[in-house]
């Protein structure tokens, strides 16, 4: 995609990404002539598509680590494999984290803005089979946000479960 400042008839330039919100990434562009800014909000699916291409808004400053996409985004990983840091200079002299910022962060909810799990709720979550736990956690958090809960208790989990028709 390319963006045009209609006022100046000038190509707008990528400036920065804003704090991700619920899986939605925001990119801010600026006109180099009049300095007008606009924000492009991507929905979670668009953000996920960007993630799946393993590309970075604003350009990559560092080369990708080996298996970066798989290691970063596979939900349930073998904890014994690829545990060490990739050697400096691996592949094309890449540094530590090529996919460090925008898209990866989009999928890590900032603790301050997300609902907080009580220890009892977390304990119950741990009993959910591992291969669906991540999905269940996201769904319950989404339910909590939509319903104004700042804390996820076992009661909220029960309500969410009823809401999901389970």
């Amino acid at each position: 995609m390319k963006f045009l400042c209609l006022e100046c008839n000038t190509a707008m330039e990528f400036k920065e990404t804003a704090t991700p919100d619920q899986g939605s990434l925001t990119a801010i562009f600026e006109c180099p002539d009049c300095f007008a800014e606009f924000a492009m909000h991507m929905n979670p699916w668009e953000t996920q598509m960007l993630k799946s291409l393993n590309v970075q808004l604003g350009g990559k400053s560092e080369a990708a680590q080996p298996m970066q996409m798989v290691r970063s985004f596979l939900s349930e990983k073998n904890p014994d494999n690829l545990t060490s840091e990739a050697p400096t200079g691996s592949i094309e002299g890449g540094g530590k984290c090529p996919f460090s910022s925008a898209v990866a962060e989009a999928f890590q909810e900032p603790a301050a803005t997300g609902p907080v799990w009580t220890p009892e709720a977390l304990e119950r979550l741990e009993r959910v089979p591992s291969f669906v736990r991540s999905m269940a956690k996201s769904s319950i958090e989404e339910f909590a946000r939509e319903n104004g809960h700042t804390e996820i208790t076992t009661e909220v989990m029960d309500t969410a479960r009823g809401n999901f028709g389970m």
Binding site: E76, P79, M135, S138
Partner: peptide, 18 residues
């Protein structure tokens, strides 16, 4: 298979929603 946690684990990608 070498990256998956155990026998029962399917391939799921981190996402806000599936």
């Amino acid at each position: 298979d070498l990256f998956l946690k155990d026998d029962e684990t399917p391939v799921l990608w981190e996402s806000q929603t599936q």
